[in-house]
Design a protein around this nucleic acid. Structure first.
Lengths: 154, 154
DNA sequence: GGTGAAACTATGCGTAA
DNA sequence: TTACGCATAGTTTCACC
C-alpha cells in the first residue's frame, strides 16, 4: 500500500471503466504493471468489488430515511442481520453504541411504503420501537478518500 | 425500463466486471444488444457510474459514525454542501426533516480523529451542536434492489 | 435485436532492474 | 519483488441486415 496503490484506488473509485493503459499513464506505470497492482489489491481484499451505481429515484426508490431500531434485547446475534436483510428496502444495517439499537438506511418509492417498512420492522422479534429520520435532500454521497498517505492534493 | 433492464441493473450492481457476452447470456440477449441497453441506461442516467468498492479499514478508515449536525439557521444554502465536502472524512451529507439539521456519515481511522472532525464541524458557520452515533459493527451494506418489476425471485 | 469484422484491452510470459 | 514489452486471447463496438 504505497502512494501509487493509493492513487490507483482513488482513480478506480472515480471511474472503474478506465483501461489499464490510462490508469498506468496516470500513475507513471505501464499498463501491465498497473494491472498487476490492481490485481493484488483485489486479491488482498483492499478492493472488494466493482459495481455500478444507480440513480435511486430511477429504480423506484426516491425516498430515503434512516431508522433507529430500538430493541428490548441484544441484537448482535446472527439472526438479526438475516431478519433485516429480508427487507429489500434496507440498504445498510449497523449495530450502534449507546443503546440496544440498530441503525438502518431505508429506501422506498413512497412515504407510504416507508410506513410499511416500519411496520415490518416491528414484526421482528425484540423490536420495541423506531425513530425515523427522513431525508429531504442529499447534499452528496461520494467514495471515501483513503486516509493513508495523501491529504487533499495541492 | 422493462424487465430486462432491471435484470441488467441487478447483475451490474453485483459485478460490473462481467463481459457483455456473459450479461447477454444471463438475460437472453446477444452481447451487442446487452451492450446497447446498458449504454442507454448510462445515457439516461439510470446507471450513474462504475466504481470500485474499497474496504474502509484497509485504507485507514475503520471507524464509522453518523453525526446529526444541529444548526441555528437553515443550512440548505449552497455554501453548506461545500463546507461539509471540504472534510474528506465525510462520505455522505443529507438535509433531514424535523429540525434544522444535517445528517453526515463520517469515516475516520481512530476515535481521536472522529473527535477532531466533530471539532471542525463546530467551526462551520451556524452549527450549534452535534449528536454522534458510533457504529460498533456493520451488519451489511448492499446495493439497493430496484423496486420496479420484481419482488425477490421465486 | 442479431451478425460479423475491426479495433481495442486484458493478461501471461520472458527478461531486466 | 516489481516493472517492462511483446504476443495472444478475449472484449468492445461498429456498420449492416
Amino acid at each position: 500500500m504505497d502512494d501509487i496503490d493509493t492513487q490507483l484506488i482513488v482513480l478506480l473509485q472515480q471511474d472503474a471503466t478506465q483501461s489499464y493503459a490510462t490508469l498506468g499513464a496516470a500513475v507513471g506505470l505501464s499498463a501491465a504493471a498497473a494491472h498487476e497492482r490492481v490485481r493484488k489489491l483485489r486479491a488482498r481484499g483492499v478492493v472488494r468489488s466493482t459495481r455500478v451505481e444507480v440513480d435511486p429515484a430511477a429504480v423506484g426508490r426516491g425516498v430515503l430515511a434512516y431508522v433507529m431500531v430500538d430493541a428490548s434485547a441484544w441484537m448482535g446475534s446472527a439472526g438479526t442481520a438475516e431478519a433485516l436483510a429480508e427487507l429489500p428496502e434496507i440498504e445498510e444495517a449497523h449495530i450502534v453504541a449507546g443503546s440496544a439499537s440498530v441503525l438502518v438506511k431505508v429506501r422506498t418509492g413512497t412515504t407510504e411504503a416507508l410506513q410499511e417498512v416500519l411496520g415490518r420492522l416491528f414484526g421482528i422479534e425484540g423490536v420495541t420501537g423506531t425513530q425515523t429520520i427522513v431525508v429531504l435532500e442529499t447534499l452528496f454521497e461520494r467514495p471515501l478518500s483513503p486516509a493513508s498517505p495523501e491529504p487533499p492534493a495541492p
